[in-house]
Amino acid sequence: MLDRLRLDSARIEAMAAAVDQVAELGDPVGQIIDETLRPNGMVLRRVRVPIGLIGIIYESRPNVTADAAALCVRSGNAALLRGGSEAARSNRAIHTALVEGLVEGGVPAEVVQLMPTQDRAAVGAMLAAGGLIDMIVPRGGKSLVARVQADARVPVLAHLDGINHTYIDRCADPAMARDIALNAKMRRTGICGAMETLLVDAQFSDPHGLVAPLLEAGCELRGDARACAIDPRIKPAEASDWDTEYLDAVLSVAVVDGLDGALAHIARHASGHTDAIVTDDDAAAARFLSEVDSAIVIHNASSQFADGGEFGLGAEIGIATGRLHARGPVALEGLTTYKWLVLGSGQIRP
């Protein structure tokens, strides 16, 4: 939480840069998704339109104030922001700066509003505001997201967990595997793209060289019996570890029997967020990318790239793990829907 709350000069510059990047993106509103000429001469177009009023419920992430506001405004939506009490002053300062810029640019200040109260009843009011709020996006811990999904009478775009796996295949380059695993876990342990389970092929050539840098970096490893045999510093894992999003310097490690074993483990325990494979075997990579049913599936790169900015989206309003409307990093296109335009020339239906 402290890491997410920290606002030093570098992070403030990063927030401002993200707003600039969103401003430079193409306007999605009015974009023609596709166009069809029917045999009767009618032209059918699907055109992007805003969703409406987007409610953002978040905690301990003051950067969401800037990211959400920029994305909503750029995609033609209004935003109602409800941040957590732990970042209330930061959120107010960021919102004040945003409103000043909006007004200066000729946009009504009311387009981006910040809930003036930290009363939890305000969250309940937002969740019950069907017909007023068009979509809710929760950003926070599991308890917050679970409550929003359980109580909302408004469509919700959300994910619950980031139980992300990195599978080191037998054909992985050992140096690449080591670097990717260390970065995927330890670059920032508290983000949703952090690796939480490392899967190692039983035939991988250098398992000790893979886990030793993690241990030396201060990461606690919890493994199955075969993983514990790699290094005596690895602690035995509990059954619950495979389904835990640590968001800390703690990592589950399992030794699996090839790609089939990795796919089976991921199918049982993944949260549908981000999963990665490290391998030089193109056929194994293709199968992994095809069969892992997560919002983001990666070959030979760190799961910490699961981020809207890294995807070239400028910023993100969140990463959705469901299967409807939007999936993965949700940015401008994910904050639009579409309508059909039917252009006729006097046609009547027989």
Results as ranks from 00 to 15, higher is better:
Val49Ser: 06
Pro50Asn: 06
Ile51Met: 12
Leu53Met: 14
Ile54Tyr: 02
Ile54His: 03
Gly55Thr: 10
Tyr58Cys: 06
Ser60Arg: 11
Arg61Tyr: 10
Arg61Gln: 11
Pro62Trp: 03
Pro62Phe: 11
Pro62Leu: 10
Asn63Trp: 08
Asn63Arg: 08
Val64Ala: 10
Ala66Glu: 02
Ala66Trp: 00
Ala66Gln: 02
Ala66Ser: 14
Asp67Cys: 11
Ala68Trp: 01
Ala69Glu: 00
Ala69Ile: 00
Ala70Ser: 14
Leu71Trp: 00
Leu71Tyr: 00
Cys72Ala: 11
Cys72Asp: 04
Arg74Asp: 01
Arg74Gly: 03
Arg74Pro: 02
Arg74Gln: 07
Ser75Leu: 08
Gly76Arg: 01
Gly76Tyr: 01
Gly76Leu: 01
Gly76Ser: 10
Ala78Pro: 05
Ala78Glu: 08
Leu80Lys: 04
Leu80Glu: 05
Gly83His: 03
Gly84Gln: 06
Ser85Pro: 05
Glu86Pro: 07
Ala87Glu: 15
Ala87Phe: 05
Ala87Arg: 02
Ala88Leu: 13
Ala88Trp: 15
Ala88Val: 14
Ala88Phe: 14
Ala88Met: 11
Arg89Asp: 14
Ser90His: 14
Asn91Thr: 11
Arg92Ile: 08
Arg92Ala: 15
Arg92Trp: 06
Arg92Asn: 05
His95Cys: 07
His95Tyr: 09
His95Glu: 07
His95Val: 08
Ala97Thr: 12
Leu98Ala: 11
Leu98Asn: 09
Val99Glu: 04
Glu100Leu: 12
Glu100Lys: 15
Leu102Pro: 09
Val103Arg: 13
Glu104Leu: 14
Gly105Val: 03
Gly106Glu: 05
Gly106Gln: 08
Val107Phe: 02
Val107Arg: 04
Pro108Ser: 05
Ala109Trp: 00
